[in-house]
Simulated assay, not measured.
Amino acid sequence: MYNSIDVPLFITIEDNALLKVKRILNRSNIYTNNPMIVTDKGVSSTFAEIVRKKLKIKKEMMIFIDQNTDEEVKRVEHSARKFKVDFIIGVGGGKALDISKLTSYRYGSYFISIPTLPSHDGIASPVASINVSGTRMSLNASMPVGIIVDIEVIKKAPLRFIYSGIMDLLSNISAIKDWKLSYEKGFEVRYNGFSRAIAYSSAENILNYDDSNVYSEDFLTVLLNGLVLSGIAMEIAGSSRPASGAEHNFSHAYDYLFPDNNLLHGEKVGIGHLLISYFRDKGEYKKLIECYSRYGIMKSFRKMKLSHEVLFNTFEYARTIRKERYSILNELDISEKNINKAVSDVLKLF
Rank of each mutant, 00 (worst) to 15 (best):
M1K: 07
I5E: 08
P8D: 10
I11E: 10
E14N: 13
D15I: 09
A17D: 03
R23V: 12
I24R: 03
S28P: 09
N29W: 07
I30S: 02
V38T: 11
S44K: 08
S45W: 06
S45L: 13
K58F: 07
M61H: 15
M61I: 03
M62L: 15
F64T: 14
F64D: 04
D66P: 02
E71F: 07
E72A: 11
K74W: 05
S79T: 11
F83N: 10
V85L: 08
F87Q: 05
V91E: 02
G92F: 01
G94L: 05
L97A: 03
S100A: 15
T103I: 10
T103M: 06
T103Y: 04
S119C: 10
D121T: 07
G122F: 01
S125C: 09
S125Y: 02
A128Y: 01
R136Q: 10
N140G: 11
I154M: 09
R160D: 09
S164M: 10
G165E: 02
L169M: 08
N172E: 06
K180W: 05
S182F: 09
F187P: 03
V189L: 11
A197I: 14
A197K: 15
I198R: 01
Y200W: 13
Y200D: 08
Y200G: 04
S201T: 15
A203I: 06
N208I: 12
D211P: 08
V214Y: 01
L224H: 06
N225L: 04
I232S: 00
I232M: 11
M234I: 13
E235G: 14
P242R: 00
S244M: 11
H252I: 08
A253N: 01
P259F: 08
N261Y: 09
L264Q: 10
L264V: 08
H265Y: 08
V269N: 00
H273R: 04
Y278V: 05
F279A: 05
R280W: 03
K282E: 14
G283C: 07
E284C: 03
Y285N: 03
K286N: 11
K286L: 06
I289G: 02
E290S: 10
Y292F: 15
R294M: 15
G296P: 13
I297V: 15
F301C: 02
K303V: 07
L306T: 09
L306N: 08
T314Y: 00
E316V: 15
A318D: 02
R319I: 08
R325N: 10
K337C: 03
N338L: 04
D345G: 11
L347W: 04
